[in-house]
Nucleic acid binder design. Structure first.
Length: 425
RNA sequence: GGAGGGAUGGCCGAGCGGCUGAAGGCGGCGGUCUUGAAAACCGCUGGGCGGCGACGCCCCGCAGGUUCGAAUCCUGCUCCCUCCGCCA
């Protein structure tokens, strides 16, 4: 959510940002609504002030055992008029709220202008895609032949866009989770947390998934709970409605969770394999920091995610999402894309964003400035470190051998009981 | 699931319907004292909205209601705690 005052005073700038985001939203009517609200407010508050003063006077009179009945009579009438005047406010305020909640974050000035994915500039590339001397298989064929990925059984158990991992496949998934968490906690200074895998609607409002993106979520029937689509939701909301001490910042947390996404509107996209699933594992990194630090923290966060790929020796590149491709709550996002041999292209495996104070304002995440004692909104950031399912895809495909077996990356072997190669049982 | 008890500021904790945005304590900040620190003493110390400002308004779990006036009374909801039952 943007600051109401900022929107009021910078309508042209906000509309320019919306245009750059290729958003169809306009601020038509916003200023009129805001004006109406303030006029009403002045009127109502004036009446309240009068009522408060009179009530005090009545209290004084009664303590002095004097008659206050005439004043009380007058106040009864005022009170009724006040109720009428107040009645319109909630409607206006609800409309204002809807307006504000629908406005996406302002893109950072360094975010390049562009319409979509194809306009995202490449920031850097690491590693060289391996040249295979044999026809490459994709992870579905590799996984089926090795009997470590079973999509058919998953369909029977649940349905499409689910996966059943078995044997070395399940072990690989578990090893990756442990490996990623260990690197982030032991070497990058993050605190490991294991949050609930469901969160209430207040939390989803806090990080911006609600009210706009409910159709992407799985709701637990008959409750106010939704399955988490990313650990960002439960972990960022750890500090919702809190005023943090400045010296505790930056807060750096990492969490493993499964992620549940309805993937509405992605029919026909990535239907094969485990690139796009309703449920996938992910290790997430979340930071809460001072506004002055957030730009630098985004760079570090992105590097923390890249480090995992470097350790796994998987070729990747980093792109900056352009204004047309950036997420609703994000001010700036780097996507890390890993090389997928079967597709001959890079695919997103991590998304690292700074939300500036956009989430913090919604979730009321503040900190107390040591010097002034003033409370300020914190900045929030998060990034995948990494999406585990897609890492499995990348490893199977990049480390495949001609005979259909798959080498285990050096860094993972200690996590897999020393296993150096995945072969059919 | 059944029966009780509770929800007040950064924390603990008072609060007959008017003098309570809220006693008192702790913590924090500033000062006196001290070579320095501690102790002692003094003062300050919640969040938000509107206004250039003086100032005004809102907030005692949430939402309604009663009343001239609600932290205090009433209704509904949410959450927490204790005991019993069930259960990984």
């Amino acid at each position: 959510m943007l600051d109401l005052k900022f929107v009021r005073e910078n309508v042209a700038i906000v509309e320019e940002a919306l245009r750059k985001r290729r958003s169809s939203l306009t601020l038509d009517g916003f200023l009129a609504l805001d004006k109406a609200r303030r006029e009403r407010l002045v009127e109502v508050e004036g009446m309240r002030a009068e009522r408060n003063a009179a009530s005090e006077e009545i209290g004084r009179l009664r303590r002095e055992k004097k008659d206050a009945s005439e004043l009380m009579e007058r106040m009864k009438a005022l009170s009724n008029r006040l109720k009428e005047a107040e009645a319109e406010l909630p409607t206006i305020e609800r409309k204002m709220e809807e307006f504000l909640l629908a406005i996406p974050n302002m893109p950072d000035p360094t975010v390049p202008d562009g319409a979509g994915e194809e306009d995202n500039p490449v920031v850097r590339t690491w590693g060289t895609p391996r040249v295979f001397s044999f026809p490459v298989k994709d992870h579905v064929d590799l996984g089926a032949a090795l009997d470590i990925l079973d999509f058919d059984r998953a369909v029977k158990i649940t349905g499409g866009r689910f996966c059943l991992s078995k044997g070395a496949g399940a072990l690989l998934e578990r090893a990756l989770i442990n490996f990623m968490l260990d690197v982030h906690t032991r070497e990058h200074g993050y605190l490991e947390v294991l949050p609930p895998f469901m969160a209430n609607s207040a939390s989803f409002f806090g990080t911006g998934q609600l009210p706009k993106y409910e159709e992407d979520l799985f709701r637990v029937a008959g409750t106010d709970y939704f399955l988490v689509p990313t650990a960002e939701v439960p972990v960022t909301n750890i500090v919702r409605d809190e005023i943090l001490a400045a010296e505790t910042l930056p807060l750096k947390m990492t969490a493993y969770t499964p992620c549940f996404r309805a993937e509405a509107g992605s029919y026909g996209k990535d239907t094969r394999g485990m690139i796009r699933q309703h449920q996938f594992n992910k290790v997430e990194m979340v930071k809460i920091c001072r506004p002055e630090e957030s730009a630098q923290e985004l760079e570090k966060l992105t590097d923390d995610a890249e480090e995992i790929l470097r350790r796994l020796d998987l070729p990747y590149r980093v792109v900056t999402l352009c204004t047309g491709d950036i997420g609703f709550s994000s001010a700036k996002t780097y996507d890390i894309e890993v090389w997928i041999p079967s597709q001959g292209r890079y695919r997103e495996i991590s998304s690292c964003s700074t939300f500036t104070d956009f989430q913090a304002r919604r979730a009321k995440i503040r900190f107390r400035e040591g010097a002034s004692g003033k409370t300020r909104l914190a900045h929030t950031l998060n990034g995948s470190g990494l999406a585990v399912g897609r890492t499995v895809v990348a490893i199977l495909e990049n480390y495949q051998r001609e005979d259909g077996t798959v080498d285990v990356p050096e860094a993972l072997r200690p996590y897999m009981g020393g296993l150096a190669r995945i072969t059919k049982r």
